[in-house]
Design a protein around this nucleic acid. Sequence first.
DNA 1: AAAAACTGCAACCGCCAGATA
DNA 2: CTATCTGGCGGTTGCAGTTTT
Length: 274
Amino acid sequence: MGRHSNSVKQKLRKGLWSPEEDEKLLNYITRFGVGCWSSVPQHAGLQRCGKSCRLRWINYLRPDLKRGTFSQQEENIILDLHQVLGNRWAQIAAQLPGRTDNEIKNFWNSCLKKKLMKQGIDPNTHKPVMDNAYAIDKQIECFDKESEFYPSSSSSMPVAVELEHAFHINNGGVMLSSSSSSMETGSIHDTYLSKSVCDPLLVEFKSGRECSSNTNSSNMNTSLSAGFQLMTFEGYVGQWQHHMHDLHVNNTQDFNIYSMGSLPGEYPDVFHQT
DNA sequence: AAAAACTGCAACCGCCAGATA
DNA sequence: CTATCTGGCGGTTGCAGTTTT
């Protein structure tokens, strides 16, 4: 209670502000300054809650507001700050005189976000997007069929296996083991640049999905590869990033590898090696 | 010309933390 | 210490204007 007691007492206006209301609020704040917002409506003769008055002042009536389209410089600042601060709009706004958090938030949601996605950049991480749900489903579909286990490759060796080599070599066998002979990192990168490849972890990942919906523990054990245990979805994505880094692949899009980053919560359980 | 879809933005809502009674 | 109030914040909604069909 308490918090909304005023709105119960008298019918408060909602929605867009009329020019008359703006004038009343502007006059009041100009005369008395910003103080206790809860008392502003009464003193200014407004049928609004104090919170609404505050918002109207901050986002619209304040004399130091800039308005108008964002400059390229402002856009760059927002992008840079968002990369560091995330959705802390108030903190971002603090670095842009004359701009409000609401304004920046709207600009981000309606414009910048789309712009980044068009460029293939994940607006949340500011890193290149290397995945999509369709690709993942296709890949799972691929694993469902034994005969199509490995996608086509110019190499005689199945791509997934070759990547396993690469991971083995570059991680000292930490992530995935391989019984075959070694290959050099450089050649892996050169060979598979711009090729569609399978995600070698997806086998484990897919097993995990099946297991997570299966309460029978013995089934779970048989589905698990030796030495693998459940890990979170985020963990899975992290593993992939490590792989790419270890392969000296800066632009993961070159590999056209499908990760799971855009599906938070959808596939909650995957595996990693113990 | 009209309807539907899209877009941008203003405003609201719920939550939280700090201040105060 | 607890309850209440207030301001601040980020997420979301709703609406008006614009564009597309």
